[in-house]
Amino acid sequence: MELIELVKKHAPVTGEQLAEYLGVSRPTLRSDLSLLVMLGMLDAKPKVGYFLGNTFRASHEPLQRFNSMKVREVQGVPVNIPDSLSVHDAVITLFMENADTLLVVNEDKRFAGIVTPKDLLKITLGNAGAASIPVSMVMTRYPNIVTLAPDETVMDAIRKMSQHQVDCLPVLMPSADSSQNPVVAGWVSKSNLIALLSDIATARELGEPE
């Protein structure tokens, strides 16, 4: 990833300097840098700048591993709900499953959209009858959603999360019938990626094959 390579070469380096190297504005990089810090790829110190995170200080192994890994290798099992489920039951599912996002499927079990805590909060605030509304009325509908394919790389997932400022990306398998929505194959979340980085770093420290 170009940002990581720049930080490795120039660390410590400020966000302003990175933006200048890349020819973009500082706000454009803000979400990318925040995600990389969250994933442990970069560290940051106030008034000092960015430098490589613990995971990357010793070698390039994790970055090389990320470059070669496919989404299908790291995707998790999503929390799917039917589009007929009520907002009330969606809220309960969200907390029971400790999920950041719910994937919505239609009656054919195909991907229909996503519902986030923010979506549910918006509809319930000051709306006494919101609990009985179906999630199909509040979800973000496919295809207006950033998604992944199983053969995309983990770095593709990181870039999409960073560019679109999302915490979770559905992994979809296209349908042979173009009139049908795709099938949900899994999902990739920031939690997945953080756990993956931790596993890679631990394996390297112990001298074990990843």
Rank of each mutant, 00 (worst) to 15 (best):
L3A: 03
I4Y: 05
L6D: 01
H10R: 02
H10M: 02
A11F: 05
P12H: 12
P12F: 01
V13Q: 05
E16G: 15
L18G: 06
E20S: 14
L22R: 06
G23R: 03
V24H: 14
R26S: 13
P27F: 06
R30T: 02
S34A: 07
L36P: 00
L36E: 04
L36D: 00
L36R: 01
M38A: 15
L39N: 03
G40Y: 03
M41P: 00
M41I: 02
L42D: 08
K47V: 03
Y50N: 03
L52F: 04
G53V: 04
N54R: 10
T55R: 10
Q64Y: 12
Q64T: 07
F66K: 08
S68F: 08
S68Q: 11
S68V: 08
K70A: 06
K70R: 12
V71E: 00
V71I: 02
V71N: 01
V77T: 13
V77M: 13
V77P: 04
P78R: 06
I81G: 09
I81K: 06
D83K: 09
S84V: 09
V87R: 07
H88N: 10
A90Y: 04
V91I: 13
I92K: 13
M96K: 12
N98Y: 02
N98D: 12
N98R: 09
A99Y: 01
A99C: 09
D100C: 12
T101W: 01
T101V: 01
L102I: 10
L102E: 09
D108M: 09
K109S: 10
R110T: 08
F111Q: 11
G113E: 07
I114P: 00
V115R: 05
V115K: 04
T116I: 04
K118F: 11
K118I: 08
K118A: 12
K118M: 09
D119K: 00
D119E: 14
D119M: 00
L120E: 01
T124F: 14
L125K: 07
G126H: 01
A128T: 14
A128K: 15
A131C: 14
A131G: 15
A131E: 13
P134F: 03
S136T: 11
S136G: 06
M137K: 14
M139I: 00
M139F: 02
Y142M: 00
N144M: 11
I145S: 11
V146R: 04
L148Y: 05
A149Y: 05
D151H: 08
D151F: 07
E152N: 06
T153L: 05
D156H: 01
R159I: 05
M161C: 05
S162F: 00
Q163K: 13
Q163S: 08
H164D: 11
Q165W: 07
V166K: 03
V166H: 10
D167F: 08
D167W: 07
P170K: 11
L172Q: 03
A176H: 03
D177Q: 10
S178Q: 12
S179K: 07
N181M: 09
P182V: 11
W187L: 11
V188P: 01
S189R: 02
S191T: 10
S191M: 13
L193D: 06
L193Y: 08
I194P: 06
A195T: 13
A195R: 14
L197G: 15
L197Q: 14
I200W: 11
A201W: 07
T202N: 15
T202L: 14
R204V: 12
L206G: 14
G207V: 10
P209R: 13
E210S: 15
E210L: 15
